[in-house]
């Protein structure tokens, strides 16, 4: 998905994990996904570049759909869709 498409998505749950180091953003994503309805879109804000690779692979394992990421000034927005 392009940055425009990602930004246009309706977000069901947003987590701001900026400032927390690995594995903080991944754990916060895991915790927050419980508050996101099945089929809803989650966005994780992280200032750790490793989060993108981590959440991509984690989604692959758990079964969520990784939608993409956007680089902002000093952090990244990571989008995925809760599958189950």
């Amino acid at each position: 998905m392009t940055a425009e498409e990602l930004n246009a998505l309706e977000i069901a749950k947003e987590v701001d994990a900026r400032g927390t180091a690995c594995p903080g953003p991944l754990l916060e994503a895991k915790r927050a996904v419980a508050d996101c309805p099945v089929g809803g879109i989650m966005v994780v804000l992280s200032s750790d570049e490793g989060t993108m690779s981590d959440i991509t692979r984690w989604c692959g394992k758990i079964g969520h759909e990784y939608l993409g990421d956007i680089e902002e000034a000093g952090y990244w927005k990571v989008f995925f869709k809760r599958a189950k």
């Binding site: 690995c22 490793g50 690779s53 959440i55 692959g60 394992k61």
Partner: peptide, 14 residues
């Protein structure tokens, strides 16, 4: 070479 966190390491060793 890429830049990752521990979640990626776990996925790799799994």
């Amino acid at each position: 070479m890429d830049f990752v966190g521990v979640g990626t390491f776990v996925d790799m060793f799994q």
